[in-house]
């Protein structure tokens, strides 16, 4: 029981670099201002537990995005009336998200075309 979570982590796919940032941006676009825990839960729900992220890894990414100006943060009150840091998409972040999304879709389209290739297509 004790070692189970770690095993689980190994079996599930590693989060590709940059993907986590994109997920955070998309989450913030949908939900509006939300705290770190909220973002973590949302990503877990959407990915359907297929993707296991140590929730802590979120925070360095949040800091980087904030330094890049894609998101901003301020203190607010959480559901249990504690102080929590709320993150919000900035105008630059919105643009970044759009650009990233477009790129991601392009990559996806190209890759899916490759996967659909059959031997006879190359003749």
């Amino acid at each position: 029981m004790k070692e189970k979570p770690e095993e689980k982590t190994e079996m599930k796919s590693d989060v590709q670099q940059g993907t986590l940032a994109l997920m955070i941006l998309k989450t913030l676009e949908v939900l509006g201002p939300v705290h770190g825990y909220g973002i973590a839960r949302r990503i877990e729900q959407i990915s359907g537990e297929l993707l296991a992220v140590n929730q802590g890894t979120l925070y360095p990414v949040l800091l980087r995005l904030e330094q890049e100006g894609a998101i901003s943060s301020k203190w607010g009150a959480s559901e249990n009336n504690r102080r929590a840091r709320f993150y919000q998409l900035t105008r630059a972040g919105r643009k970044l998200l759009q650009a990233e999304t477009r790129e991601w879709k392009q990559t996806e389209a190209i890759l899916s075309r490759f996967f659909e290739l059959k031997p006879e297509d190359l003749r």
Binding site: G36, R41, Q55, G56, R82, R83, R85
Partner: peptide, 17 residues
Amino acid sequence: ERLNEEIAGHIELQTEE
């Protein structure tokens, strides 16, 4: 300090859940 507070809050919320 900010990070510590965020971590504490985060774990608190998860524990409640």
